[in-house]
């Protein structure tokens, strides 16, 4: 696959084409110290990623933007369930980091839905897709600071009302260290203490191209730029929209973390808010830096 459909910074850290394999994207799991019974429920079942051909019951194989395979995350059919993949690196310097991808999303096809109000355009399955989240995990040498940016696209709420907005988080992801110390245990959303701890990015309303049925996928371009020197977000571009993120507040961890110098992790996830499986697909992912 060519990198021509990307706009990377001057040094490409990785260019993952999922026709070439899983490329280091693996399931996130909570810390356990060797005892699986110690994993907190919210981070115990974040599902293995899949190499998908985007195959559907009505048309067969859709394929990816390029080639056949994409990276797929799939939730269980349980409201609040989240599927999270992570890729783990370390950094050589601090500065600009740019995450780019071509992605698409779908809710699992349902049968026997009430079509009395169906207009032939807006599909019932669109209301069954919840959240997409892009995030990271950064820790500087010497025990910190540690912080995690997170941007969420909320497609629909638990009642099936379309929200279609970009959000940022206002509380910390619960680390195992926090949980062991008895602090701020999360509920069902790994990014925040409370699933309600999300606020709209200014100007963040952006309908994406769901395209009418549960089995048509349209690939979207996303470019997320952040600055690990200034410790803040910069901007998010999705297709024809670019959001200014420079003033988005970032929660920092008050405690120190050993064993994580220069941590630079990238995470992608999908979260269903209804009892329907939600799927998130990545044709490819490119991360580049200015250092």
């Amino acid at each position: 696959m060519s990198i021509a459909n990307y706009n990377p910074l001057r040094r490409v850290l990785f260019h993952d084409d999922f026709d070439q394999g899983i490329n280091g994207w693996c399931e996130l799991v909570g810390n356990h110290g060797g005892d699986l019974d110690r994993i907190r429920p919210a981070v115990a079942d974040l599902r293995p990623p899949q190499l998908s051909s985007c195959t559907f019951f009505d048309i067969g194989t859709h394929g990816a933007l390029d080639g056949t395979y994409s990276l797929k995350l799939a939730t269980r059919k349980k409201a609040g369930h989240q599927a999270v993949a992570i890729k783990r690196l370390t950094s050589q310097a601090r500065g600009l980091v740019q995450f780019e991808t071509w992605f698409t999303f779908k809710a699992e096809q349902q049968f026997g839905e009430d079509l009395a109000d169906w207009d032939g355009n807006q599909d019932p399955s669109e209301a069954n897709f919840g959240d997409i989240t892009f995030s990271n995990d950064i820790c500087e040498p010497g025990g910190g600071p540690r912080y995690m940016f997170a941007l969420r696209y909320r497609n629909a709420d638990a009642d099936g009302r379309l929200v279609q907005r970009w959000l940022y988080k206002t509380s910390l992801h619960t680390t195992t260290k926090m949980a062991v110390a008895g602090r701020e245990i999360e509920h069902t959303d790994i990014h925040v203490r409370d699933p309600r701890d999300w606020v709209e990015v200014p100007g963040g309303h952006q309908p994406l191209c769901f395209n009418e049925v549960a089995t048509k996928v349209n690939w979207h371009y996303l470019r997320w730029l952040y600055d690990t020197k200034a410790r803040r977000n910069v901007e998010l571009q999705v297709n024809d929209r670019t959001l200014n993120l420079r003033n988005i507040p970032v929660p920092f961890y008050p405690e120190t973390y050993e064993g994580l110098p220069n941590l630079l992790n990238f995470l992608v996830d999908v979260r269903t808010v209804r009892d329907v499986r939600n799927f998130l697909f990545f044709d490819s992912i490119v991360v580049s830096v200015d250092w």
Binding site: G21, I39, D45, Q50, S53, A74
Partner: peptide
């Protein structure tokens, strides 16, 4: 050759019949 190991159930407890989640293996 590519290889991949997926953990379909991790320390899960079941009290009756179950099926694992659908998993794509076409490759």
């Amino acid at each position: 050759r590519r290889s991949f190991t997926a953990v379909l159930e991790k320390n899960a407890v079941f009290d009756g019949d179950f099926a694992t989640e659908p998993y794509e293996v076409g490759w």
